[in-house]
Design a protein around this nucleic acid. Structure first.
Lengths: 375, 375
DNA sequence: CTGAAAGCGCTTACAG
DNA sequence: CTGAAAGCGCTTACAG
């Protein structure tokens, strides 16, 4: 037995009470077209008396615009997406847009399902964090249908849609360069590094070329590129054994990789983590170890999370402007929805190095000679 | 200049290509009513060929149901709401429902605006975390209009809508009792404690009566009630000076309250924080102090956040089943939408004490005699 | 099982 | 400035 939803007050009811046509009532209530002050007041007070609320569905069916944007996030529960969503939500509310939110869980089937739902709900545009750089046919067809997409954090090759992200290479480069300047020579990195048909060795070879461009790669690879560049500039040789590749966005995977790295007899003296989830897994591994930060191990994390400011030691981080990324993406999308047809835009935002005390010069490890050169 | 949205393929197009009426096409595509295998196949292949996607707006306009639920959260960026939303989202996706999300920012005007938007978007039901226990007229009118509401975490008095929350009193009681059992006699609490027309002294007097019921109060007051009960059971006198009342959901406010408490010459030897945000502020204050956990100060936090498991020392917490709360609320709402008209339901979920090492017996403070009784 | 017709609640030309 | 009419893309009785 379905509960029968009361068919609320309609524009027809208002028009009848006000003694005008539905067209006139519509013009007043929808604030389009002309209306005399007299009719206007009649309609308004009738609407008030009846408690009229417009049915946006009906309006959208005609206008072809829903004033709704859809989002496909990786996982709305993660601090990264939660902050981005907040930024998107701010802009949406400010512009009287609704927001439909879905998760892909980094699964292409889910992503396709989400996009279909958003399409059927007739969103005016979408913000998507695509989970497969190569699997974007479903997105191509959205764009082809004239529905704007803004990609966030990650992108599909040759989709030709706007993009908002951060300068991953620069952020990682600066963090790793700081560790190198402190004298670290064995710097571990824990990253997702999932897509990519190459081994770490092969990527090192590619990325060592000064002309190598990683712009279209996934964030963790761009961050590894920054790692490589910092090493090249410092003249420090690369060691593939120092790279922990979790291959999926999972704290457990990262924890496992960090444990492996730290239990090695020639363990790294510093760790660079490639995102929030990798940081959580890595810190869990560190907490289980006997290592004291920063004396036994220096750490810098990509993405600054709330708690990093009040644990001991406080953790150094590469901060991404997550809220601003969401706002920029939403604003760009609204511009597109409003008809802005300038060429494809790429907004690459700057990261910020946050120094708090989780970096110190390396100490000599048992059985190892460490030459501290520093800056 | 508005970009003209291409009016996609409609059921009329499909019907024409398939050589059937729109009614028949609708029956096949919408999977309602009868259809012969022959027509069915024709319609399906025509739809496939044209790339038909139903326009859910049109369907909803007729059926009066949008298969969409709306959520009014406090702040989707907080880990508390982010997890709840994930739970809601899981159930929604599983049932092919869309999800429209808004924030109230604990501001009644925003909440009213959000509810209006959801109403105009014709959601089939709402999940709301109301920000004012007394200000619920806008919610009353929603329920009166036949649109089900499930309240989460907090509730409006006498709204007569379902509710999903946790046993705040019990959770707080057990945490504080554990501190008392360790010998703590001066236990501070940092909480929002915003609504309520009483002072802490007055509340202590009220809540000391064994028959006092705090079920309809805001969570932080219920948690303070648990604090009071644990003290009464242990025969430990209450001291209003030990309660830091931030009066708003703000980490800064909590930090300030914690600083005040900790800088007092007869400072507490243990702290109980009443929610995630209070914990963040409190931990910031602790990080700035000279106090070492757990030797100088024991801590238990209400709400278990990811990072509490891998900081040092790991933090003890009262875990709320946030994801399950969201799932339960969404499931209950879907039941109501499906027509379940049983009497108002209250789902009160259990918390779980998580012991990790941030609690130890108190040490004597300079200039104070401490009698450790504990077990 | 199928089709013609009406209609959901609005907005949009089009006359006046 | 206003109203009668048509129509957005579907679903729903109602005949057949």
């Amino acid at each position: 037995m379905l509960s029968k939803k009361k068919t609320g007050v309609t524009i027809t009811d208002v028009a009848r009470l006000a003694g005008v046509s539905t067209a006139t009532a519509g013009r007043v209530l929808g604030d389009y077209g002309y209306s005399s002050r007299e009719k206007r007041e009649k309609v308004l007070s009738a609407a008030q008396a009846l408690g009229y609320r417009p049915n946006l569905l009906a309006r959208s069916l005609i206008t072809g615009r829903t004033k709704t944007i859809g989002v496909v996030a990786g996982d709305i529960q993660s601090p990264f997406y939660a902050s981005i969503l907040r930024g998107i939500s701010n802009v949406a509310e400010r512009n009287d847009f609704g927001l439909i939110i879905t998760n892909s869980d980094e699964n292409i089937e889910h992503e396709i399902r989400s996009v279909r739902l958003l399409l059927e709900k007739q969103v005016d545009g979408m913000i998507v964090s695509p989970c497969d750089p190569e699997g974007g046919e479903h997105l191509v067809s959205v764009v082809a249908a004239g529905i704007p997409i803004v990609q966030i954090d990650r992108q599909v090759h040759s989709l030709g849609a706007d993009f908002v992200g951060v300068d991953n290479k620069q952020g990682a480069h600066d963090a790793v360069a700081r560790l190198l300047a402190q004298g670290h020579r064995r710097i571990g990195m824990i990253g997702e590094l999932g897509y990519g048909d190459w081994s770490i060795e092969e990527f090192f070879a590619l990325a060592s070329a000064p002309s190598y461009a990683s712009d279209s790669l996934y964030p963790s690879w761009q961050r590894l590129h920054g790692y490589v560049e910092a090493h090249r500039e410092a003249g420090v040789p690369l060691d593939p054994m120092l790279i922990g590749r979790s291959r999926s966005y999972s704290a457990q995977g990262a924890q496992h990789q960090a444990q492996m790295l730290l239990s090695n007899k020639s363990r790294p003296t510093a760790l660079f983590t490639a995102d929030g989830l990798m940081t959580e897994g890595t810190m869990a591994a560190v907490a289980e170890s006997d290592l004291a930060l920063p004396d036994d191990l220096s750490v810098i994390c990509f993405d600054d999370l709330d708690w990093m400011g009040f644990v001991r030691p406080r953790l150094d981080a590469v901060a991404q402007p997550r809220g601003a990324m969401g706002e920029a993406a939403a604003q760009l999308l609204l511009d597109r929805i409003a008809g802005n047809d300038e060429p494809e835009k790429r907004i690459v935002m700057r990261t910020r190095q946050i120094v708090r005390g989780s970096v110190a010069p390396p100490r000599a490890l048992p059985g190892q000679a460490v030459s501290v050169t520093g800056q």
